[in-house]
């Protein structure tokens, strides 16, 4: 569904990614783990067009999206819930969610049942239903994270990128986030997940990649990575 091939990207003169390749098959959850600064967020930004790759190819559902602007990539069916949530603080919860469906509302993508999907998101995140008319800027951190995820789902994406959805959340909310990722997986949503809680991420994922200094160090079925001594020592000791 999503194929990243020999991707090079960075910021200005600084190269961060050195030719990484990642496959996210349809209906699967793939996780990308690695320590702080390894390049996980940069990978996601390059895929969703927030930064331009300097080389390599990115193919989404058979379409080459390499170097395209974000809005075209979103229309092609890629939803990206970015690091740091990035909800629109001066808009209401409902408006944020409807903006997630912007290409559907403006005929860039098949419209389908936007209001029905809004309802489904509210079923998934009952807190958001309670606060539907509240400005997003007044939500708690956990609620904003729910909103960022809900907003991404509203696209009805071919592939969903989640960048550290549990960042900065209290333990109870972290569990909630993983419960939702599981629920999405059961619905068949294809996902690329970046998480600081590598063990939990490998539990929900089908397949995993380990990123180190901008290169893929190893990859394999999640089950296998979980039991790999090197991976255990480096990433599964504690959350970081």
């Amino acid at each position: 569904m999503l194929a990243i091939k020999e991707l090079y990207a960075g910021y200005g003169m600084v190269q961060v990614l050195h030719g990484i390749s990642i496959e996210v098959p349809q209906g699967k959850v793939v996780t990308l783990i690695g320590s702080n600064g390894a390049g996980k967020t940069t990978t996601m930004r390059a895929v969703s067009g927030m930064i331009k790759p300097s080389a390599g190819r990115i193919v989404l559902a058979g379409r080459d999206i390499t170097g395209k602007p974000s809005h075209k990539i979103a229309k092609a069916g890629l939803a990206h819930s970015p690091e740091g949530r990035r909800v629109f603080p001066t808009l209401s919860v409902t408006d944020n969610l409807r903006l997630g469906a912007y290409p559907r509302l403006t005929l860039g993508r098949p419209r389908g049942d936007v209001d029905g999907d809004l309802d489904k998101v509210f079923d998934l995140f009952p807190r958001l239903r309670e606060r539907r008319d509240q400005l997003a800027g007044t939500l708690s951190g956990g609620e904003q994270q729910m909103l960022a995820m809900g907003r991404a789902i509203m696209l009805n994406p071919e592939v969903l990128l989640l960048d550290e959805p549990s960042m900065g959340l209290a333990p109870l909310l972290v569990e909630e986030v993983f419960r939702i990722i599981r629920a999405l997986k059961e619905r068949g949503v294809t996902m690329l997940l970046v998480e600081q809680f590598a063990a939990a991420a490998l539990n929900v994922a089908d397949y995993g990649y380990v990123l180190e200094n901008g290169s893929i160090r190893c990859h394999g079925p999640a089950e296998k990575l979980k039991n790999d001594p090197a991976v255990r020592a480096a990433y599964l000791g504690q959350a970081h």
Binding site: P69, S70, H71, A74, H80, F88, P103, R151, L155
Partner: peptide, 14 residues
Amino acid sequence: SDLDAAGLMGINTN
């Protein structure tokens, strides 16, 4: 309010 995030929504910010 957020140019990059708006782009991710599929909005042609230019």
